[in-house]
Simulated assay, not measured.
Amino acid sequence: MSCESSESSVALRGQSTGCEPAFEDHYMVLQDIGAGAFTQVKLARHLLTGEEVTVKVLAKGASNFPFLSEGDTMVGLDHPNVIHLFQVMETKNYIYLIMEHSGGGQWWDLIPETDGMQEEDSHRVFRQILGAVQYCHQKGTMHLDLKPENVVVDASGKARLIDFGVNTRFTAGKKLKGFWGTTL
């Protein structure tokens, strides 16, 4: 799944992009880049600055209520290996999480199928992911869905942790109750 944009993939204003006018007044959707159980992920361009951003669109509803706190969690995170949240827009039907666009694709897609990743590169990426997780834990946040699909790479090759949709807040020394995350 490519995150590259091109002029041919630009959604024209007036075309249905699945977004509301309040969002489209500020952003132009370029292409769909992913989807989750309760979300759509889009590449968009900020109309004022021209900057490409990743937008996670969460439909409001009773079934996905536990996942609507992602924006609240991400607002408090500022680490070089955690994707940066720029803005949260809320409308009657949706929540839009506007985040920086990494530009380098998913980490999983960058691992060569035949030889795998070189040991030096895998150590570097693992240290970066570990640093992001440690930072989140220091802030009282557990990601709860760590997997290769939730790590992207920026243009300079730095690993970035994404998708805090099933996160939880915790207090050090207290046990969590329940189970979250992807079962594989």
Rank of each mutant, 00 (worst) to 15 (best):
Q138N: 13
E120K: 04
T54E: 06
V10M: 09
K174G: 00
C3S: 11
Q15L: 06
W108I: 14
I162S: 02
I162M: 05
E20Y: 05
W108Q: 15
N64V: 13
V53H: 07
Q87K: 15
Q31W: 06
A35G: 15
D163I: 09
K56C: 04
D109L: 08
F67M: 13
E100I: 07
E149M: 10
V125N: 10
S9L: 05
A155Y: 03
V125Q: 10
V10W: 09
V57I: 05
T182Y: 00
M142L: 12
L77W: 04
I162P: 00
R45H: 06
E113I: 11
W107G: 10
L48E: 15
V55F: 07
S16H: 03
E119V: 14
P21A: 03
T54A: 15
T114V: 11
H143W: 03
E149V: 09
L146Q: 07
L146E: 08
A155L: 10
G131D: 15
M1S: 11
V151Y: 08
E7S: 13
T182A: 08
Y96T: 03
Y96E: 00
H143K: 04
G178D: 00
L184I: 07
P80T: 07
D72F: 12
L176D: 01
S122Q: 09
R160W: 04
A62M: 12
V10F: 09
F23Q: 02
Q134Y: 13
H84V: 02
V125P: 02
E149N: 05
H79N: 04
E20L: 06
I33K: 00
L30H: 10
N81I: 09
N167M: 12
Y96C: 02
Y27K: 06
K60I: 05
P112M: 10
L130F: 09
T39W: 08
N167K: 06
E100V: 04
P21R: 07
D32Q: 15
M74E: 02
P80Q: 03
G157A: 07
Q118A: 13
E52Y: 15
G116P: 00
A35F: 08
T39E: 12
R160T: 09
Y94A: 01
N167H: 12
G105P: 05
G140V: 01
L77D: 02
E120T: 10
K175F: 04
V82F: 05
G104E: 03
V133P: 08
V151M: 14
I98M: 00
D25C: 12
E52M: 11
G105L: 05
L184A: 13
A155W: 07
A62P: 13
F126S: 12
P21G: 00
I95L: 12
H26I: 09
G140P: 02
G131Q: 06
G105T: 12
V133Y: 13
Y27G: 05
F86M: 04
F86R: 15
N93I: 12
H143T: 04
Q31Y: 07
V53N: 06
M117F: 14
T182Q: 01
D78Q: 12
F23E: 02
M99R: 07
G103W: 06
W108T: 14
L97T: 03
W107L: 15
